[in-house]
Design a protein around this nucleic acid. Structure first.
Lengths: 345, 345
DNA sequence: TTTATTTGTGCAAACGTGTGCATAGGAAAA
DNA sequence: TTTTCCTATGCACACGTTTGCACAAATAAA
């Protein structure tokens, strides 16, 4: 890599061409004769030439990199998203720069700043649950950096969005609870302001309405930090259990909340699903091994990553400014297991 | 980022200095008067100047990036490693480029090639289980790119290594099995050639020897693809179960093998731990929720990532060639749960 | 006063590519 | 034959930074 690297100038000298001719030959310019192209390409191939990406970047003002803004890497959902993004980016010649917000608005803003210094060509963003102030994101976007939202989206910027079908997923799960015989279904969910929170609640309410089950606002609990703080999950569950009419089932809205709530019920020796059934959104890898096996709604995380990356690269490479933006909604998968099955006594 | 970006030349023009003076002032060169430095820095601060990293890279031939070569991102162990690496790299001004080998030697070689084209300043490598040919790695290293191994290490290159204390972890777990009353302890492990395989087997054998338990070679099963192919795990377990004297406990050597084996026993309705106990290396996040709760040895993945990144950056930035290399061994944690407890009938 | 030294600044080249413009040589048209 | 046009190539500069060297001005030493 250090010693063996050949430059265009080296090739030019060796073949007695000018560096511009070599450059054009390698890029298949129409101005160069076939003969010359052949000679140059052969020599380049033989000497294992590869363009210096830093020089290209400097010249073209394109870094061939895309920034990824998400909550936490060791979270199965995001890890799968990353994997999906990588699979596309790799083949299109982009590399990805990952930053973690850990749900903190302040870290998110700092990360955005860093990414812009790195002059990324575009951004894939899943908002931190804390985030209310979108100004830094809007500023970057206004400066011409394309952005694609995934998972936790926002309308503060007019651009593509890639999400799971949160409404339908929540609807299917709630419906499943109802059809299994549960009537008092609680909902423990993410911070109030997130897009996913609204959508999942919408699906939940839709199912309840369809079966004429009255909505009990006491049954809906928000976790302001998205479950980053385990106590907020535990408190929510405990409040539900302490109610005069505790729910007989609980629908949890995210990976962390689902696992946290499940673990808390375990810790408190509360029978699942006898005392309370539980199921929710979760991309954890082996919920079938849980005790009892856990009913989940899986999001197509890998595909979401792929789709988001494809849309972003399209935006980056498009010549004319894009005017029509797409909201890509990918289907979820309800996997019914023991934690949501009514046990008739 | 696009519009607002100010260059050194802009500052120079605005303040009527030459660009070299500005450059030196910003880098605190002793040649520049305090007064000038103050003026330049103030202006830079005010106009939100940030150096163009691509230009710096081109000039210095340092990309300020480090390549990460690992098996799979959505594997909790590696996800935690990445997070650890990121936490260090971020603060030291490096960004990381992640590539996945999916345990394939061929993809690993391709990734290495790509990373060298990207002119990374250094590499963090955990070998794919298939890999036998180290020549491409050695070539890159010979060209002056520092490399630090983590987890799956090799002696083919003289450099730093960061590993978990595999011998002790395996020893502790095997000892725990023995002290719980198990005597026929099988070992399902990774491909024969990996460093971790040897070390974990060594700890296993050490514990057996200590308690004068004869080694049954039939009890040791290798998974040539490290469990990427689920069938090889299932076959290994089935072979153990089919033996005339089947083992009463099995020690599994990696995340994937542990989960795969556990799931297979589930599927086959084999009582854990009554018929066969199981425990192993596993960085899965919630093994206490399994049915039964799963005894694991946790590796300090996040710390391993941090340590590896620190060593690598030290290598990259060191002026004189490093001659003394370190093998950093980080302690593991045995978490005893129900899957490894002898049930007395 | 002259000479030597220090201090602060600018010039110009370099890193490796890409590209607008000029031009030499040859072919085709007049 | 002269003029026009096309083809293939080279020149020179730009991208933003860094750095060796030169040099002017100010100061210190002789």
């Amino acid at each position: 890599m250090k010693n063996e690297s050949i430059t265009i100038t080296d090739i030019a000298k060796a073949l007695n061409f000018s560096s511009s001719t070599v450059s054009r030959a390698l890029r298949d310019s129409y101005q160069i004769s076939e003969e010359t192209k052949r000679i140059v390409k052969e020599y380049a191939e033989k000497h294992n030439y590869h363009p210096n990406l830093m020089a290209q970047s400097l010249k073209s003002n394109k870094s061939k990199s895309i920034g990824l803004l998400l909550c936490s890497i060791p979270n199965n959902f995001f890890a799968e998203v990353i994997s999906g993004v990588e699979s596309i980016a790799y083949n299109r010649g982009y590399h990805i720069i990952i930053t973690q917000s850990h749900e903190s608005q302040e870290r998110e803003a700092r990360n955005l700043e860093h990414l812009s210094w790195r002059s990324v060509d575009g951004l894939l963003v899943s908002l931190a649950s804390e985030t209310k102030d979108m100004s830094s994101l809007q500023k970057i976007h206004a400066n011409g950096v394309p952005i694609v939202f995934f998972d936790r989206v926002s309308d503060c910027i007019e651009t593509h969005q890639v999400v799971a079908d949160n409404i339908d997923g929540a609807y299917q799960l709630t419906k499943h609870f109802i059809e299994s015989g549960f009537r008092s279904i609680a909902h423990v969910t993410s911070p109030y302001d997130l897009s996913i929170t609204h959508e999942r609640k919408e699906g939940y309410l839709k199912a309840l309405a369809e079966y004429d089950i009255p909505v009990n606002e006491q049954y809906i609990k928000y976790c302001p930090h998205g479950g980053m703080i385990i106590e907020e999950i535990e408190m929510a569950i405990q409040q539900l259990l302490d109610m005069e009419q505790p729910p007989d089932a609980v629908f949890t809205a995210s990976d962390r909340i689902t696992i946290g709530a499940f673990a808390y019920l375990h810790k408190k020796n509360i029978g699942i699903p006898e005392q309370i059934a539980i199921a929710g959104f979760c991309n954890f890898s082996s919920p079938e091994l849980f005790n009892p096996s856990l009913t989940t709604i899986r999001q197509p995380a890998f595909e979401m990553g792929k789709a988001a990356a494809e849309l972003l690269i399209e935006l980056i490479e498009s010549k004319k400014p894009t005017t029509h933006f797409e909201k890509k909604i990918l289907g979820t998968e309800l996997l019914v297991r023991d934690s949501s099955v009514k046990i008739v006594i």
